[in-house]
Design a protein around this nucleic acid. Structure first.
Lengths: 344, 344
DNA sequence: TTGAAAGCGCTACCAG
DNA sequence: CTGGTAGCGCTTTCAA
């Protein structure tokens, strides 16, 4: 590879010292106006680009942020990543992007690999397979700014940006109850995830307010958040085999919603006549599918943007761990009522 | 931030030299077995992680690859990125990921920013706004391995991984002709993109083989590849205002397919009775939308994976620019026939 | 106004 | 088998 042109090259060519060139290029310190112009011109002509790695080594920061999430090929997360990249690139940060694929081991690997790269900060949505948070806590303790989004580390002080999962589930359940549905089941992600718990709580709360007893058998969790069609199919089959049969299902993610919908159709159920379906979903097609889908929409792009801006601000202020004040931002969800939960 | 522990720290603590510690940690060179064990143990205990930035500066490579594409929030590209990340992480590479948002200026910025980070290689799908390739050619000339995927730099020697856009469009058009459609229109992306040209060529070819005259007025291009709903709506309206009115439309991307579908419905057209629609699409819901969508599916995940593997191989072999043999891989598309193009 | 030197953390070479 | 030294490219004192 033809070496990129360096400050030293410019210095030699112009019979100056490296420090002078560096100064000229940054406009800092004192420097003769003519020397400066000459250097700038030559640098331009030679298409000089500072070596960011070297700058990074020197300054101990990299203007890059690490991102760990479970899987990008998912409407919700690709919107989030869109938001992350936008905010980061606007502030001159680059994103190192990794997928945990719901595996604790992979998440751990990626987090360590990122930390070794002098990232200035880390953005995390924890994997479904993660039950220990030491790897995050250690880094946080060492002073690395971390912002969790969507799926957060519970019961530990940390910066968080989340959707109002409780309210989303609560509103959706309420809507179903008000439509007259009596037996509302719930298919959700892995039980220990923060989003799962929050949504479950919203669901329970709505039932409770209407004096409908909560039956745990009507709630099915999927270990991989519906990544495999099979775990969803099982949950669906088991729910529909129950007595009484549920007349509505609330689903907890894009994938779960889609799978449940498709399972219903494949089993010959009509929506909403035989079973109503409504769920968390950031699909671009919800109004193309008939019956149009009732869904709780999360501000995914905004979540990515907000989390990134929060992170970059933290990077800027360089507080010590002790004086850190942890912030939790909750973004509102919106309920879109479609035909899939309409009472017939 | 509590400084990470360095080789020097270990050396001081153990009364050894930095070089010895470095050797021990890498298992290279000669070193006493007991010293080695002692060092390894201590490093582990102190949770030592090599500073990759320093390694990078020294070795002049970073084990990271840059990625530039137009927008991740798009089914096709998020699948591609999934493939890229998988392949990269498997080989121990990290991905620096950027979005050009169909803008030449942003693309240029990102490419330069990436190049300054000592990336070992670059993965590119060119933006719709890009008509000059100097920024890529310069880097390629300087020895940086670049692999283009999906939208490639035309008429220039370069590594490429693309879908068989010609065949995809050809098969789809053929299918429509065989179903008996007479006036087949085409809505595609920006006219100068490689994918647009290839698809147009396949379309023309099928018409030609059936002795159907090609009328340019029945082909509409969208500057931003249908990123805005509006440009698609305009194209749709203009097509349907023509005389004779087309009885089928072939669309050139996820977004265009979705928008066209939705436009048809909103204008009160029945698919396929009033107008047949088939297009390039990697949607996960194509069979949930009735009528089920006829679509040309591209192996997006595989495209990302293949491009990345090709890139990493290039990085490994370190040929000079002169001895470079450029390779173009073409991945087959598959036609899924649904009801949206069924003759009624 | 400019230059020399030191050092960020790491590794490769050459002496001992 | 181990240590010293140099240098990757850059910036930042400090001295001239």
């Amino acid at each position: 590879m033809n070496r990129q042109v360096t400050i030293k090259d410019i210095a030699t060519a112009l019979n100056l010292s490296a420090s002078t060139v560096s100064r000229a290029l940054h406009g800092l310190g004192t420097i003769g106006i003519s020397t400066r112009k000459k250097i700038i011109a030559y640098a331009e002509q030679m298409n000089y680009r500072p070596n960011v790695i070297a700058q990074s080594l020197r300054s101990q920061q990299s203007r890059s942020i690490g991102v760990v999430l479970c899987n990008i090929d998912n409407n919700f997360f690709s919107e989030v990543v869109d938001g992350i990249e936008s905010a980061a690139s606007e502030k001159g940060y680059l994103c190192l992007f990794t997928q945990s694929r719901e595996s604790y081991a992979l998440e751990l690997n990626h987090v360590e690999a990122l930390a070794a790269r002098n990232i200035d900060g880390l953005l995390v949505s924890v994997s479904a397979g993660t039950k220990k948070y030491e790897h995050f806590l250690r880094l946080q303790q060492s002073g690395l700014p971390i912002v969790f989004f969507d799926r957060v580390m519970e019961d530990w002080p940390a910066h968080q940006v989340v959707a109002d999962n409780f309210a989303g589930a609560y509103q959706l359940t309420n809507h179903l109850i008000n439509e007259g549905y009596k037996c509302i089941a719930h298919i959700s992600s892995a039980p220990h995830l923060s989003i799962t718990k929050e949504r479950l709580a919203g669901y329970k709360r709505a039932l409770w307010e209407h004096a409908i007893p909560y039956s745990p058998e009507y709630v099915k969790f999927t270990k991989n958040g519906g990544a495999s069609a099979e775990e969803n199919a099982t949950a669906f089959r088991r729910l529909l085999a129950m007595d009484p049969k549920p007349d509505a299902i609330i689903t907890g993610s894009d994938r779960l919603t889609l799978h449940t919908f498709s399972n219903a159709i494949n089993h010959g159920y009509k929506v909403p006549q035989d079973i109503a379906i409504g769920g968390f979903a950031n699909l671009k097609v919800s109004n193309l599918i008939p019956p149009s889908l009732t869904c709780v929409h999360q501000p995914a792009y905004e979540m990515g943007k907000t989390a990134t801006e929060m992170l970059i601000q933290l990077i800027g202020q360089k507080r010590t761990v002790k004086e850190m004040v942890y912030e939790r931002k909750v973004l509102a969800t919106t309920l879109h009522v479609g035909q899939s939960t309409m009472r017939v």
